[in-house]
């Protein structure tokens, strides 16, 4: 099942005027892949997401799911094609995890909402896929944020739609949960062959895990490719580099632009060298091969201009001392 947009123009109408955010987008969402939608706030991420999810009509163009125009379907049909995970807060007094997940089956139940054995199969599958077996009978409100998010994802899985759209699923979560959620999503796309679109700010994780990035640096700009291509093409740097921050093509991470005035020569290799460099740079020193002040890594200590120190902290104070003298 493919989702394809044709000449899609997203935006909204405001007092008889049309505000265009993105024009003539032709993108496609492949099966069984995870796509990360990356972009700063205000670039039109939410609008595109809502349009693809069928919640907001595009200004022009169409969204086709398996050849069918998404916006000519009614809510019931849409609910069998696309499921959502949002940042909405759920007040689920007295609902158990299992019950929340079971809501995902509602598009397939009759007016009474009664679940068949087949429905329960799917629900249990979803529970297993999201590692919620232990928590199934617990009240939803007693879960941690990460567990709640997993439950909402399980609900979307139970809804058994070919496409799952998530809006910032890792917002407000601790780091460990963030990794967990995105890994889970990746796993799911592989195991269930669903197409998963995640809007997120986690560029690092997205670049590691996503099969495709949809990059929106600003309104009217859109790039779609595998993460590595975008990095090599300079799209990522162009999108995010600023006076403060720079995308380091070597490491694939963002580095803070520093403007050091004092320089140190660093000799050594391995992790200790990396962290020593980081510490020195954080303190405002630059690394320069031509500097007169030299730090040499010995087996268990540091040697700065032939003086030995035993800890990094000591090294830093020594370096400060020395270089301030010179100035």
């Amino acid at each position: 099942m493919l989702l394809v947009t044709k000449d899609l123009t997203t935006g909204y109408s405001q007092k008889k005027e049309q505000v265009i955010i993105h024009e003539q987008l032709n993108i496609s969402l492949p099966e069984g892949k995870m796509v990360a939608l990356i972009g700063p706030n205000g670039s039109g991420k939410s609008t595109l997401l809502r349009t693809i999810a069928g919640l907001q009509k595009p200004l022009s163009g169409s969204v086709l799911v398996d050849g069918k125009n998404l916006f000519s379907c009614n809510n019931a049909e849409k609910s069998t094609l696309i499921s959502l995970v949002l940042t909405d807060r759920i007040e689920a007094g007295y609902l158990s995890v299992e019950q929340v997940i079971s809501f995902g089956r509602y598009p397939y139940t009759g007016w009474g909402g009664n679940l068949s054995p087949a429905d329960w199969d799917r629900i249990e599958q979803a529970i297993i896929l999201c590692h919620l077996e232990r928590l199934a009978k617990k009240p939803f409100s007693q879960l941690s944020d990460g567990e709640k998010q997993r439950t909402m994802i399980a609900r979307a899985i139970a809804q058994d739609t070919p496409i799952v759209v998530l809006d910032e699923p890792t917002a407000h979560l601790d780091l460990s949960y963030r990794v967990e959620i995105l890994s889970l999503l990746k796993q799911l796309s592989r195991n269930t062959n669903k197409s998963i679109v995640v809007a997120t700010h986690e560029l690092d994780l997205a670049m590691h895990l996503a099969d495709q990035l949809w990059l929106m640096p600003a309104q009217h700009q859109f790039f779609s490719n595998i993460p590595e291509e975008l990095a090599l093409n300079g799209n990522i740097s162009d999108s995010f580099n600023s006076a403060l921050v720079q995308f380091d093509e070597w490491s694939g991470t963002f580095r803070i632009n520093r403007h050091p005035t004092k320089f140190i020569k660093l000799t050594g290799a391995g992790p200790r060298a990396v962290w020593t460099q980081k510490a020195l740079e954080r303190e405002g020193f630059g690394i320069d091969k031509k500097s007169e002040t030299e730090v040499v890594l010995t087996e268990e200590a540091w040697c700065i201009n032939n003086e030995t120190v035993l800890t990094l902290t000591a090294l830093i104070s020594k370096a400060k001392e020395m270089l301030n003298e010179q100035a």
Binding site: L55, T80, S83, V100, F103, Y106, P107, W111, G113
Partner: peptide, 24 residues
């Protein structure tokens, strides 16, 4: 009583309810 399913859907909020097929 005929609205029992719709009301259950609304427990998760209007957005989720609509995404699960509710005709708001």
């Amino acid at each position: 009583f005929s609205l029992q399913k719709n009301l259950n859907l609304l427990l998760l909020g209007e957005n989720y309810a609509v995404s699960m097929g509710l005709n708001l």
